[in-house]
């Protein structure tokens, strides 16, 4: 059984794979077993780190969220008390719903712009190298610098509004970053600006990998270029799009530095996000119970969004 392990990784191997593993079995011998032992030993530190720091920390956090811990951990089980309190906190409501608003805008914006740029570059090959560098450049800047830069650019007193007024349009108003109901959109805008270059690079690599004969076949059939992209080429790149989606979604959930640098959650709490909420409660207010509960809700939401999607993708692949 142990000899078959390398093929049967993932344990619940589908029928098609188990046939392969039988076919592989004859070449397995003693040498193979020694080698597989060495491989397992080499994996031990990684697995230990994963278990010790990652999953143990997650479990600890989840448990603490079900106690009455405040400044210091208390290990007496207290059920959903922290969650009741969390969902009675207005700031959490703002942060939590902001995550979805920010997430939807950021995903649609980044993916849409990234794919569009990739398609444009795929069409106009001439300045590809130059454009790719320009578009990828924002990614080399940290979220902190991105946030600060956009804070300055969007600030009514020193940024775009000020500049346009100096040109003579005295009535010009562009102060979204200072408006409680608009600030979150400026965050999404900066997020899109920062990440769409990466999505473009990934998608461009995918577009370049498409068999040229597919394009020729479509051209001979008289299928317009835009239709070829939408109905044939982009569906072929579905796995890449899913990868991009996951990358952006992860960036959305963990986004903390961008908010801190750009709006610091303000005005008021209007552009707060769960990441910032957790850090604030954990370290500034020293309320580890609330912070843990918020973190657990983030984890749960993430799993709820991602798992059906992953499930469908894996099911498609196994079919």
């Amino acid at each position: 059984m142990s000899a078959r392990l390398p093929v049967a990784v993932g344990t619940a191997s589908p029928p098609s794979q188990s046939a392969e593993s039988v076919a592989v079995a004859p070449m397995v011998g003693r040498a193979y077993r020694t080698r597989s032992r060495a491989a397992k030993i080499a994996l031990v530190p990684t697995i230990a780190i994963m278990l010790g720091f990652y999953y143990a920390s997650i479990s600890w956090t989840v448990y603490i969220s079900m106690t009455r811990s405040f400044l210091l951990p208390i290990y007496k089980f207290a059920g959903a008390a922290q969650y009741e309190r969390l969902f009675a906190t207005p700031r959490w409501h703002v942060a939590y719903s902001n995550m979805f608003l920010f997430g939807v805008l950021d995903i649609i914006g980044t993916l849409g712009l990234g794919v569009l740029l990739a398609v444009l570059l795929d069409r106009a090959v001439r300045f590809e190298g130059l454009f790719r560098t320009i578009m990828l450049y924002p990614l080399s800047i940290s979220f902190i610098v991105t946030g600060l830069t956009w804070q300055w650019v969007l600030s009514p007193t020193i940024g775009v509004q000020h500049f346009v007024r100096d040109l003579g349009w005295d009535g010009f108003v562009f102060d979204w970053i200072t408006q409680p109901d608009r600030a979150i959109y400026t965050l999404a805008f900066a997020g899109v600006w920062h990440q769409s270059g990466l999505i473009m690079a990934i998608m461009l690599a995918g577009l370049r990998g498409v068999d040229r004969e597919i394009w020729r076949a479509a051209r001979i059939e008289g299928i317009p270029t835009w239709r070829t992209y939408i109905s044939i080429v982009l569906p072929m790149l579905r796995p890449l799009i899913v990868t991009c989606l996951v990358l952006i979604a992860i960036a959305v959930v963990r986004s903390y530095d961008l908010v801190v640098a750009m709006t610091n959650g303000g005005p008021g709490f209007s552009s707060d996000l769960p990441g910032k909420f957790v850090v604030d409660f954990e370290f500034e207010r020293a309320n580890i119970g609330q912070a843990s509960a918020a973190a657990t809700v983030m984890l749960g939401s993430m799993l709820a969004v991602i798992s059906p999607y992953l499930y469908f993708e894996l099911a498609r692949k196994n079919r």
Binding site: D211, E213, I214, R216, A217, A218, I232, P235, M236, R238
Partner: peptide, 9 residues
């Protein structure tokens, strides 16, 4: 075509 160039999806 040589590679058939079928639309895979």
């Amino acid at each position: 075509f040589q590679s058939y160039a079928l639309y895979p999806t």
